[in-house]
Simulated assay, not measured.
Amino acid sequence: MAPSILISEVGPRDGLQSIATTMPTAHKLRWVDALVAAGLREIEVGSFVPAKLLPQMADVAEVVRHAVARHPHITVMALAPNLRGAEAALQAGAHKVTLPVSASEAHSLANVRKTPAAMVQELQAVVQLRAATAPQALIEVGLSTAFGCTLQGAVPEDDVIRLAVQCAEAGVDEVGLSDTTGMANPAQVRRLFTRLRGELGPKAGAAHMHNTRGLGLANCLAAYDVGVRTFDASQGGLGGCPYAPGASGNVVTEDLVFMFEAMGIDTGVDYNLLMAAREALQAGLPDEPLYGMTPLAGLPKGWQPAA
Rank of each mutant, 00 (worst) to 15 (best):
V126E: 03
L79H: 08
T150V: 12
H95F: 10
F147N: 07
P135W: 00
K96C: 11
R130H: 05
V127Q: 04
A78D: 00
R191C: 11
L196C: 09
N185T: 14
H95M: 08
R195L: 15
L99V: 15
A88E: 14
A118H: 09
L83M: 01
Q124P: 01
K96P: 04
E105A: 13
V97N: 08
L196W: 12
A86N: 07
E169M: 10
L151S: 00
V189G: 05
F193W: 03
Q166M: 14
L177Y: 11
P100F: 00
T115D: 01
A164T: 10
L143M: 14
S102G: 04
A164C: 09
D158W: 07
G85A: 10
T181G: 15
M119P: 01
C167F: 01
I161G: 03
R84E: 08
D179V: 06
C149Q: 07
V141M: 05
V175I: 05
K114N: 12
L129N: 00
V155P: 05
E105P: 01
H107R: 03
A89P: 13
A134S: 14
A94F: 13
A88L: 14
A168L: 12
G171S: 06
P116M: 08
L192P: 03
P186Y: 06
A134Y: 03
A184W: 11
E105K: 10
P81A: 06
Q152H: 13
S108Q: 07
L90N: 06
S102I: 03
V175L: 07
S102Q: 04
Q124I: 06
M119T: 08
A89S: 01
A125H: 10
V165L: 10
R162N: 13
N111E: 07
R113H: 14
A92C: 02
A170I: 06
L83C: 09
T133Y: 05
L177W: 11
L177Q: 06
A184M: 13
V189L: 14
L109N: 08
T145Y: 09
P116T: 06
T181I: 01
K96D: 09
E174Q: 15
L109I: 11
T150N: 09
T180S: 13
G142S: 15
F193E: 09
S178G: 08
H107M: 08
M183P: 00
L83S: 01
V160N: 12
A168D: 09
M119E: 04
S144Y: 07
L192Y: 07
P100Q: 02
T150I: 03
A164V: 05
V97I: 15
L192I: 04
A88G: 00
T145W: 03
V120D: 05
P100K: 02
Q91H: 12
V112S: 05
V97D: 00
Q128T: 13
H95Y: 12
A132D: 12
L192H: 09
H107A: 08
G93F: 08
P116D: 02
V101F: 05
F147Y: 15
V175G: 09
A154T: 10
V112M: 01
A118V: 00
T150E: 00
T133M: 07
P156R: 11
F147M: 10
A92H: 08
A137E: 04
G85L: 06
G182N: 02
A132M: 02
Q166I: 03
V126W: 08
A132Q: 14
L90K: 08
D179N: 07
A168C: 02
L138F: 04
A184S: 14
L83P: 06
T194G: 15
L79M: 15
A103S: 15
A94M: 11
